[in-house]
Design a protein around this nucleic acid. Structure first.
Lengths: 284, 284
DNA sequence: GTCAATATGGAATTTTCATTCCAAATAGAA
DNA sequence: TTCTATTTGGAATGAAAATTCCATATTGAC
């Protein structure tokens, strides 16, 4: 072996190992770097798997795993694996606990930390909320409408734009024809003018409502193009133009709302649509 | 064998196993009861130990462990062990169940509904995950760096673009000067060329990494402009260019990931930055 | 391009481990 | 007590897994 590692050099816990890997990753040869990346990205797999199964999953040879372990001073793969197992045993304390552990006089840290905590808690609440408020039948109807469309028009402005833009990204990956409306105000209406009878639209709008979105939805509805919408209020101007609409209220922290629950909803809708299309056999 | 167990009788998860053990504990012979007590008291040992090591620790013979497993319908000790391992894999099991119980709706009946449930559960898991993986200290450093910047450059492509675009929206509302980089490839570099010593950048990139984002971050770092980044792997090319970086792995449902946890993180960071600025008195 | 050094794949080997088996012990019934 | 059924300990077995080894491939220096 080229490098002689003394006992002190061998990482004794996961954090030390991670640090060592990150420090030396640049100098590692190809396959070993591959293992390094896999190990840090899938620590649970390393903890539970066998050398053979991990090797397959990481697309290397079992012997490479042994070499990797030896590179970091371990006797073999098994001793390295112990580190990954120990990590699961000592359950890492949550953010809450670590926050409490901070020195009480460090006010700034506590403040940023509590903001972080607040948003995570709000997101949990939002998720609990949509689980109860979204009606499965309505969801199924929405999926049917959109899965049956030739092109799905995604309408969103401002605060809701990130949702549609993510759906657009996902639809692209899933090879579902779509058109994102809301990028630059000028060409929106031209795009919508092309929408035909076999198309459908999904509109998202949260208070304060962008009036263009409501107008565009109305326009489509008047042309018998079905609209599915996501809003934060039954009084949203979108609701009246929609065949199916969902009310989804994000919980707030200190008056600010994240889009956590909306994102989960959007992804569920997106994947459900793609799945339905695949079943219907007209995937594109 | 005295008792014939049908497939349905074999506990499929830890809770079922625990219930079965408690129910039959009284009727078990001495050594098997000993194993039962040990198993419930030291589930982690069962998960990771070998039959020999566990046997020694529980003061029985290895064969007794096999008999114990067979008593509960498993083929052998190994299959029983899988239950104990599964328990550690799913950090917080039961989100799916909780959702079902919480919800008056029965989402599980319909195909689309189960997709919906899956994404909500995955989002919950993701949130639990960031709560443990984000270090308050690093968060505070990130807030300080970005709050101190004149202009915050937001770098993101593809899957991570919705996050930055939402941050841009929120920064706009909060009157924090910022520049969203990633809209159209052409003008990106021109915008970044204007970044100066007093600015900072926040970059988001998830696997598969957009190489432009990494290059842009590298470019900024080389000009001594501090970069804070959010990635899903310590191996992200962004990490090496960053003063502070966060690793945030979104849980997946059926291979698809939503951005729920990332959104909560992004909003927390955004609001924390604005709040810090307000305190420093140079809010905009 | 040539050579040396390093890295890699894959088969061969060795070690470790779960399981099986059988003899001995124990508990329970008559 | 005596007989039987059940439980237990511990060695033997066979399967599975980690590790080693060697031939081949790749990289880097000159």
């Amino acid at each position: 072996m080229a490098t002689v590692e003394t006992t002190a050099d061998i990482p004794q816990d996961f954090d030390a190992l991670k640090a060592a890997i990150l420090e030396r990753k640049a100098q590692l040869p190809k396959r070993l770097r591959q293992v390094a990346a896999y190990a840090l990205d899938n620590p649970d797999e390393i903890a539970f798997g066998t050398a053979a199964s991990i090797a397959t999953s990481a697309d290397v040879q079992p012997s490479t795993l042994v070499r990797f372990a030896q590179h970091f001073g371990f006797e073999g793969f098994s001793s390295l694996q112990l580190i990954f197992r120990a990590r699961l045993r000592e359950r890492t304390p949550g953010y809450e606990d670590r926050l409490r552990a901070l020195s009480a006089n460090d006010h700034s840290k506590l403040e940023s930390g509590s903001i972080f905590n607040g948003f995570v808690a709000a997101a949990h609440r939002s998720l609990d909320n949509i689980a109860t408020s979204v009606d499965p039948d309505a969801f199924e109807r929405a999926v049917n409408i959109l899965a049956g469309a030739e092109t799905i028009y995604l309408i969103a402005k401002r605060r809701s734009y990130p949702i549609s833009s993510y759906m657009a990204y996902a639809f692209g990956k899933l090879k579902v024809r779509h058109q994102l409306v809301g990028t630059s105000a000028g060409i929106d209406d031209d795009m919508l003018a092309m929408a035909g009878k076999n198309d459908a639209a999904f509109a998202v709008s949260f208070s304060p409502y962008a009036s263009e979105s409501a107008n565009q939805a109305r326009l489509l509805a008047s042309r018998k193009i079905p609209v599915v919408s996501l809003t934060d209020s039954a009084f949203s101007p979108l609701a009246e133009s929609s065949k199916v609409w969902f009310e989804l209220v994000e919980a707030d922290h200190a008056g600010f709302r994240s889009l956590s629950a909306s994102m989960a909803f959007a992804m569920a809708l997106t994947v459900a649509i793609a799945e339905k299309r695949r079943r219907l056999g007209d995937g594109g």
